[in-house]
Design a protein around this nucleic acid. Structure first.
Lengths: 197, 197, 197, 197
DNA sequence: AATGAATGAGCCTTCATTCAT
DNA sequence: CATGAATGAAGGCTCATTCAT
């Protein structure tokens, strides 16, 4: 990808994160990216396209880093912990993206089918990793819940999101994702099951 | 409140829920509310004001119904269950609102201090109810967590939100909120503590 | 004329004098006149009508008081002095009107023929009084100018207007209209002519 | 100044001169200037800004041409004559401007302090030129009046304005400004003083 | 007769998009 | 390739006017 395109993406990410879609103008983006307005249209089809590519580019990175966890970690409990840390790390570094991902989710779904499909595809992969660990734990008899692995995975992700969104109310330090995972895991743990590690 | 104002609010709620802020035009709102454009400006200062009043009016209802739970329920476990059901019921009936509340949360905070303060005030009340039940449970020695009651309450609410947002992945029927509460409660339950009820 | 209509006229005069036509709203006028909006439309055809009636009502008063001078005064010099004082007095009491009369003159002429004709009719009467005195003075051999009586009368009125518009730069006291008349009269006076009175 | 900006200014001058502020639409201006609507906003902050710049740009030209008279002319009588001709020439060529300058004068003063200050600054310069000639004549013992030079200068300008505004009632030909100056000068002339030139 | 809530045409203004340089 | 001046469609908002009460 061209340098210019990357600059634009970066500027757009920053600005879209700070304001609602319609409050961000292309002029602002161009000024921040130190790029002419025409250049944006060389690399992106239109404003909407730019918006979604900002989100998708972030999502891609996250998906990759989460999938790496899935590949190298076998133990369910460890897996969940690492997934949590992975997501928290990612969004800590790219805080701007966090607000965007999710906020426009439902809206997108109703209007632009095509783009939403792309989004959904990626999102499914993240959920699948957590669901995978949970399913494995259930198979091993360590986890149990009246929720399906997929449903439980959603809650898991929801808890992480909530933690990120409310960092101020989480315990000091960088351990809070572990506390959160602990709560979740205990919630689906089968009594008397030997705790992992 | 005048009939017209209520009509406008209702139409706006529906439309804002379906599309992004800038995609919803006043003309659309007027047509849906069967009201002239000027009438909107008699009751609302501008589009932004209308938007926030849609959100606040919904939030008010929710706050009230959640606080009623706090008043009539003593048992922490029962309380959490009812809070969950209360929120799920509310948003099931007013699905449109759900997308709005939360989606623009972070954005609002950065731009319009005054409005955000109103929002925050209300939101704090909801969080306080759940936190209250959790704190009570901890005092009674039934609950424990490395998270504070407030932090745990946030996660609790986050799980409910996730459930609502992904109803399709939750178990069929109307019991899933209970499954969700069960997972959460087990997560903070002190082993060997006698389960309530 | 009904009391209400008079109230409206008075309020409108005050407001139209303070702001440009398009900056004055009917709401403002109604509030100032302590009258409902519909009432304005009972007495005036529309905003434009109200505007012109404000001007015409003032003009009528002025015309009458100037014509009284013409009837009771024979001496040209005395006549001019009294016309000047008469106009200055009138506009001192109804300062608001002064800004209006004249300001929109040219504009009106281009658009609304009918109304302008009314205005012109009245204005002609004022000019005629001054022109009458000047013509009389010329006939008597006391005044002379390469300008016609009508032309000189216009300048006379223009000087008075300028004096009113720049009261601050005129000498202190209420004598400045006389100083002004003196300048004008000397300007048309035939040398060696015996000064009146 | 860009060509487009000049086109806009010219079109706006023509239209504002023909109709009241609120009767002139930007669409009209754009059409006349053969320019897109957005272009207007590239060069002018808003409609009001455009309006004032039309007036100020005209005023600037007038100030310059009047000041040139002051620099090259020494004799008071000649000076006054030339100032008169200068103003009449200017407004004959740019008749549209004449209606604007002055008509909105008082209104502006009440609302927009900053703009009025600019206007006043320029206007003062014009008045100063005439006042300068009158003061010189007084010092030389040729002129006398119970009015101050500044006050007399105002009347002088007022007479010119009146002449312009009522060209039809002035004598045929282009000599009327001289007749006007004659009337004024005779009005302040000291008897027995030797007439200039 | 008087009111003021309701209306909607019309206008200013913004801003995504284009295209000549 | 890059630029940014120019464009004009689109939308928020105002306010003169109407009309049911």
């Amino acid at each position: 990808m061209s340098d210019k395109a990357a600059d634009i993406l970066k500027a757009a990410e920053k600005l879209f994160a700070a304001g609602r879609y319609h409050e961000v103008t292309l002029d602002e983006i161009c000024k921040n990216a130190r790029v002419g307005k025409g250049t944006v249209y060389r690399y992106f089809h239109d404003k909407e396209d730019l918006f979604w590519r900002v989100i998708m580019s972030g999502l891609n990175e996250l998906v990759e880093s989460v999938q790496q966890v899935a590949e190298r970690e076998e133990d369910p409990a460890q897996g969940l912990r690492q997934v949590a840390c992975c997501m928290v790390d990612f969004f800590s570094q790219r805080a701007a993206l966090f607000g965007l991902m999710g906020s426009e989710r439902l809206r997108a779904s109703t209007r632009k089918k095509k783009i939403w499909k792309q989004w959904h595809q990626k999102d499914k992969k993240i959920k699948a990793v957590a669901a995978g660990f949970i399913a494995k734990g259930m198979e091993e008899g360590r986890y149990a819940s009246s929720l399906s692995p997929a449903g439980a995975a959603l809650l898991f992700r929801g808890m992480i999101r909530t933690g990120l969104r409310n960092r101020r109310d989480m315990p000091r330090g960088n351990d809070w994702p572990l506390a959160l995972v602990e709560l979740f895991e205990k919630g689906i743990l089968v009594r008397n099951a030997s705790k992992s590690k």
